[in-house]
């Protein structure tokens, strides 16, 4: 009989250790099946959380060989094949306070979630007579992110959060924030955006772990990117992150290529960049920073590049206006739908 060994990280509130359990292999099972099997047949003291078994409740997220995943929807055989081994390591999510074994504490996370007010603050124009409508197009903008089940997989593997969680929030918090910022019925996007920026929206490292780990196919990194863009659109531009991102557009429009040599000055300003002089000298001594490259020649097609960017933005604007008109028809109480008017 093929045997599968699980090395599970245990924690009793004080001590942490690795405990091995061995089960007979059964085909077509999940990681959650193994956890339940271990608890029921080998060790009732093993603690983990799980509920719906359908990837809806988000309770059973654990790390399998260092990768956060929902235990209930992760096929055991797929993991054995991926790791080419009959031994798997199961650990609790990272970047969470640990309670027992595989059980993590969500209470501090709920408090951090509340920082970005993940609830609807309806616009004043809505009332109980006219309701709180939005168009199908506007609903589409919030529908995807409403799928977040708060499992914590994104937070577990977030490189920025692992580095320091005091000036950044969990990726799912930004996803929830984006859902309300994008909600056509919400009246307070600026307040949320400003909170998102103050809580580190420009500090994301772009590692794409959150996008990779989300069991619901959401893209927290993209949500962070959208929050950044929205914040800029609402005038929240006093940030090194904004200047850094803007430098890319400016350089592309100016010469077509990035001017690395001037990046620090453009992002941090001249005064702060002076602190980088030892670093600059380090690079210069190896020819990595060439003062002759500070003012690069534009590519000869640069006018064409500018025209293309402009033209694509124009056609996008036209499309957005058309969409907004459709949306207005749904939310304006004066424009009633034919069916209701007939009532």
């Amino acid at each position: 009989m093929r045997k599968i060994t699980f090395k599970i990280q245990r924690f009793d509130g004080q001590e942490s250790w690795i405990q091995e359990y061995t089960l007979d292999h059964q085909p077509g099972k999940t990681i959650l099946w193994a956890l339940i099997q271990i608890k029921e047949t080998l060790d009732p003291s093993l603690n983990f959380t799980a509920s719906c078994r359908h990837a809806i409740c988000g309770a059973c997220a654990v790390r399998v060989n260092g990768q956060a995943t929902l235990a209930c929807e992760t096929p055991l055989d797929k993991m054995l094949k991926r790791w080419e081994s009959d031994t798997l390591i199961l650990e609790p999510l990272q970047n969470f306070k640990l309670i027992r074994d595989l059980v993590v504490d969500w209470e501090p996370k709920a408090e951090r979630l509340a920082e970005l007010k993940p609830w609807l603050m309806p616009k004043d124009e809505f009332n109980k007579e006219s309701g709180c409508r939005q168009s199908p197009e506007d609903f589409k903008k919030i529908n995807k992110n409403s799928d977040c089940i708060l499992c914590g997989c994104c937070a577990s593997e977030c490189n920025k959060l692992s580095g320091n969680n005091s000036d950044f929030l969990e990726p799912f918090v930004f996803t929830k924030a984006q859902r309300f910022v994008a909600d056509s019925r919400d009246k307070n996007p600026v307040e949320r955006l400003s909170a998102a920026i103050n809580h580190g929206a420009w500090k994301c490292q772009h590692c794409q772990e959150c996008v990779t780990k989300c069991p619901k196919g959401l893209s927290p990194a993209e949500d962070i990117s959208n929050l950044r863009q929205e914040a800029i659109a609402k005038g929240l531009v006093e940030h090194s992150g904004v200047r850094h991102a803007k430098a890319f557009l400016d350089d592309i429009q100016k010469t077509g290529r990035l001017n690395e040599g001037m990046m620090a000055v453009k992002t941090d300003g001249l005064v702060k960049s002076i602190g980088n002089i030892p670093f600059a000298l380090r690079l210069m001594s190896k020819g990595k920073l060439n003062p002759a490259h500070m003012f690069p020649k534009p590519i000869k097609e640069v006018a064409e590049v500018r025209a293309i960017i402009l033209a694509v933005k124009e056609s996008e604007k036209a499309r957005n206006i058309a969409n907004a008109k459709r949306s207005e028809a749904h939310t304006n109480p004066d424009i009633q739908r034919p069916k209701e008017a007939a009532k």
Partner: peptide, 18 residues
């Protein structure tokens, strides 16, 4: 010939369309 900067995974935060 005439390739430009890809945006370096920052441009989209300022201007996704660009």
């Amino acid at each position: 010939p005439g390739w430009t900067c890809c945006g370096g995974s920052h441009l989209q935060d300022y201007d996704k369309t660009a």
